[in-house]
Amino acid sequence: MPDSPATRLVHAGRPPAVPGGPLNPSVELSSTFHAGTGPDGLADPAVRNYARVGTSTWEALEAAVGELEGGEAVLLGSGIAAVTAAVEVALAHAGGSTRVVVPARAYSGTVALLRHLRDTRGVDVVAVDPAEPGALARAAAVPGTGLVWLETPVNPTMELTDVREVVAAAAPGALVAVDGTFATPLLQNPLALGAHVVVHSLTKAVAGHSDVLLGAAVAADPALATALREHRTRTGAVPGPFEAWLALRGLRTLDVRLQRAQATAGLVARRAQEHPAVLRVRYPGLPEDPWHAVAQAQMRGPGTLLALDLPDAASAERVAASTRLWVHATSLGGVESLLERRRRHAAEPEAVPEGLLRLSVGIEDAEDLWADLAQALDGATRTAR
Rank of each mutant, 00 (worst) to 15 (best):
A261W: 07
E274D: 14
A272L: 04
A272C: 02
E243Y: 08
P287V: 12
A272H: 01
L258W: 00
H231S: 06
G240Y: 12
R270K: 12
A272Q: 00
E243G: 07
Y283S: 07
H275Y: 10
L254R: 00
P284D: 07
E230M: 15
A269F: 11
L248A: 05
A269Q: 14
T226E: 08
D289V: 01
R282L: 09
R232Q: 04
R260E: 03
R232H: 09
A265L: 12
A263Y: 03
T235F: 13
T235P: 13
E230L: 13
R280W: 04
A261D: 04
R271D: 09
T233A: 15
W245I: 12
R270W: 10
L228V: 11
A277C: 06
L258G: 01
A244M: 00
A225Q: 03
R260P: 00
D289L: 06
A223I: 08
R234D: 15
R257H: 00
R229G: 10
D255L: 06
A265Y: 07
A263I: 05
R282P: 05
R249Y: 08
A237I: 13
R249A: 14
L224S: 00
L248Y: 06
A269I: 13
A247V: 10
F242C: 08
T253R: 07
L254E: 00
L251T: 00
L258V: 01
T235C: 15
W245F: 14
G266E: 13
E243Q: 13
A272S: 01
A265K: 05
E288V: 05
E230V: 14
R252I: 02
L267K: 02
A269C: 12
F242G: 05
L248N: 08
R249P: 04
Q262R: 11
T226Y: 12
A237F: 11
H231E: 15
R260H: 09
T264C: 15
D255N: 08
V238F: 03
L254D: 02
A247P: 04
P287A: 06
E288K: 04
H231K: 10
T264N: 07
V278H: 11
G236R: 00
Y283I: 05
L258S: 05
E274S: 14
Q262L: 07
G285H: 02
L258R: 01
E230K: 08
G250C: 04
R260C: 04
A225P: 06
V268C: 07
Q259V: 11
L279A: 12
V268K: 03
T235A: 14
A247H: 02
A247F: 08
R271S: 07
A237E: 09
L248P: 04
R260W: 03
L251W: 04
H275P: 07
V278N: 11
A261L: 10
A265H: 10
L228I: 03
G266S: 15
V268G: 02
W245K: 09
L286H: 02
G240P: 11
P276W: 13
L279R: 14
A263L: 05
L228E: 09
T226N: 09
R234W: 15
L246S: 01
E230S: 13
Q259Y: 08
E288G: 04
G250T: 01
R270T: 14
A244G: 00
G285V: 02
A269W: 13
L224E: 03
P290N: 09
